[in-house]
Computed example of a mutant assay.
Amino acid sequence: MPLSKQDITYIRQAKTILDENFDQHITIPHLARQVGINEAKLKEGFKELYGNPIHTYLQHLRLEKARQLLLTTSMAITDITYHIGYSHVTHFTSLFKKEFGLTPSEWRKENKAE
């Protein structure tokens, strides 16, 4: 599905909303309505422009933010979980370990020492 200049503008607006509100519960239907594009075009166009589906992009954004917090703060893992928009520590921990190969506490321990 070819993207018009206007579609690209809407998709970039959607990415900005995700970047600024990564800690919120954001649904694709709501995001599509917010920027004024249909869901299918948003999903396909987002993947075309940014290389990942919206869900994957948002998950990666959250995990990167968690890594920054682990490195630069002494926030508890539970607090970081909620701060980045997850409601279950076990879910966050398993996503983090899958992405980075270590649990958040292991990652913090290894990287704080450097």
Results as ranks from 00 to 15, higher is better:
53 P>G: 14
91 H>L: 04
27 T>N: 05
37 I>H: 13
68 Q>Y: 09
26 I>M: 01
80 I>F: 03
56 T>A: 12
63 L>W: 07
49 L>C: 07
60 H>G: 12
21 N>V: 10
56 T>P: 05
76 A>Q: 05
75 M>Y: 09
85 G>W: 09
58 L>I: 08
55 H>E: 13
67 R>T: 12
97 K>W: 03
57 Y>W: 00
98 K>W: 01
61 L>I: 11
37 I>K: 02
74 S>R: 15
40 A>T: 15
98 K>D: 11
73 T>N: 09
22 F>N: 05
75 M>W: 07
62 R>N: 03
84 I>G: 01
43 K>F: 01
77 I>Q: 13
61 L>A: 11
77 I>Y: 12
40 A>P: 10
39 E>A: 04
58 L>W: 10
87 S>H: 11
79 D>A: 07
28 I>K: 05
95 L>S: 09
24 Q>T: 13
69 L>A: 07
42 L>Y: 03
20 E>N: 10
101 G>P: 05
50 Y>S: 14
47 K>D: 08
32 A>V: 01
50 Y>V: 04
89 V>M: 08
47 K>C: 09
100 F>W: 06
48 E>C: 07
92 F>W: 01
45 G>F: 02
51 G>N: 06
74 S>C: 15
49 L>D: 14
88 H>N: 08
39 E>C: 01
20 E>Q: 13
48 E>G: 08
66 A>N: 06
75 M>G: 11
99 E>S: 06
38 N>H: 00
83 H>C: 07
94 S>V: 10
38 N>P: 00
91 H>V: 04
50 Y>H: 03
60 H>M: 09
79 D>V: 14
30 H>G: 14
81 T>F: 04
32 A>M: 01
26 I>S: 04
53 P>K: 12
56 T>Q: 15
51 G>P: 05
54 I>R: 01
55 H>Q: 13
31 L>M: 06
34 Q>V: 08
81 T>P: 00
37 I>V: 08
45 G>A: 11
90 T>A: 11
35 V>M: 10
78 T>G: 09
21 N>K: 01
97 K>H: 11
70 L>D: 12
48 E>P: 05
90 T>I: 06
31 L>A: 05
100 F>R: 00
26 I>N: 00
28 I>C: 06
70 L>H: 03
83 H>I: 06
76 A>S: 15
64 E>K: 14
21 N>W: 02
43 K>M: 13
29 P>V: 04
23 D>R: 10
62 R>G: 03
48 E>M: 10
32 A>P: 03
32 A>L: 00
86 Y>I: 07
87 S>T: 13
101 G>R: 12
80 I>V: 03
31 L>E: 01
70 L>G: 02
22 F>K: 03
60 H>F: 06
29 P>Y: 06
94 S>A: 13
95 L>Q: 08
23 D>W: 08
101 G>H: 10
30 H>D: 14
37 I>L: 00
93 T>N: 00
24 Q>H: 15
69 L>P: 06
71 L>M: 06
83 H>E: 13
26 I>K: 09
97 K>D: 07
50 Y>E: 04
90 T>Y: 11
62 R>M: 07
23 D>N: 10
62 R>T: 02
94 S>N: 13
45 G>N: 11
77 I>N: 14
69 L>W: 07
73 T>Y: 12
80 I>Y: 05
100 F>K: 05
98 K>V: 09
37 I>W: 05
89 V>A: 05
49 L>F: 11
98 K>C: 06
24 Q>L: 10
54 I>G: 02
45 G>E: 04
46 F>A: 02
101 G>D: 11
53 P>A: 15
